[in-house]
Design a protein around this nucleic acid. Sequence first.
DNA 1: CCTCTCCTCGCGATATATCGCGTTGTGATT
DNA 2: AATCACAACGCGATATATCGCGAGGAGAGG
Lengths: 207, 207
Amino acid sequence: MTPPVFSHGSLRLYLLKLLDETPRHGYELIQALGDRFGGTYSPSAGTIYPRLAKLEEEGLVTKASDGRKTVYRITDAGRAELAARGDELGRVESEVTDSVRRLAHEVRSDVTTAMKSLKAELASAARDARESASRVPPVSSTTPDDRTTSRLALQDAELALNVFRHDTRAALRTHIGSGRSFTSAQLAELRIELERAATSIKRILTH
Amino acid sequence: MTPPVFSHGSLRLYLLKLLDETPRHGYELIQALGDRFGGTYSPSAGTIYPRLAKLEEEGLVTKASDGRKTVYRITDAGRAELAARGDELGRVESEVTDSVRRLAHEVRSDVTTAMKSLKAELASAARDARESASRVPPVSSTTPDDRTTSRLALQDAELALNVFRHDTRAALRTHIGSGRSFTSAQLAELRIELERAATSIKRILTH
DNA sequence: CCTCTCCTCGCGATATATCGCGTTGTGATT
DNA sequence: AATCACAACGCGATATATCGCGAGGAGAGG
């Protein structure tokens, strides 16, 4: 299927580099790798832990249990290995960046096809709704009263709220994930914006 | 957050039902639940395992280790509980189906907006590529300090988002609760307001 | 009755580890 | 030099478990 982001042995080297910066536990390494390469890609646990186990077996890192976590620390032998092959690091880095870029591209077309299947799904859902509408007879009248309309609209409103919250969160994460900073000044602006929206919505409700 | 698919205590009951059919291990239960409800939704491991632990503590199921797996089996006490509350099962099932349908709805609009943000992301990636072609590519664009403050600000932003959502929901409920109607016209205005806020916030993030 | 507190619950995020598939690199044999 | 078996590797899927948050429900106390 998709070609690996890290080529043969690259991950091993990169893990050593990360552990040379500071000791970390496994999950932290996964996040660190995700951070460095645009948030689009994160290596899976099934990639990291076997590699760490191997590195320990080879004596290049040590493992120390810290409560729920397992902290890995580079050894002298590990530093030696890193010194010997450190010149490969630059090449590895640009290779990975390239792979990630390609991956992002794939994700795009992926979403495009997802849209198509979703349209099909929606059509089937609509068919579903039509069917159940004809099978289940209307409860009382053809024109639903205000109360019912309100409740339906309320559900839609909550849905819209959820979507808004979700999208904004996603935007924030993407922003930070791509290496840009999110300042307290921007936070303040965001707060003001939310305040304004809240006020507007209250005005809408009272006419 | 998104309202839970299983309401209070429903999952507990449903797990008993599944274990009454046949003994299973935890991951198998997660998959079984995913299968029953359209594939869109699968309960997370963080939902299943604490519940199974609780059920075992209560003596309604027993745990047996089988290599890498942990097989759970219903006990007589568990079957008694199931017999006593089995009539709730039908209700639970339709509740869950409804929730899942709503979730699918959310996913739909999610993908639509994901398309937009992906286009933006690609544009920025292209910009990036052009830039890095002329300049020396920075390994990590943000200093650790910046990242830390960003993460803190991110937490504050999520809090603000939650407060906003909560307040708006409360306003809607109060409005309808006091006998006034919430029309689809007002819903449309609300949507526009949220859209406007979302746009503003994205503008804030890009300066 | 009403509300306030506390416990429970669902759930995403955090954390770790193994298995099997397909690919790639390597060394031995031809 | 060519090839061919075998090991090493990346990675998604499988498997388990804990933590903290926010919402729900039950029971106490007014």
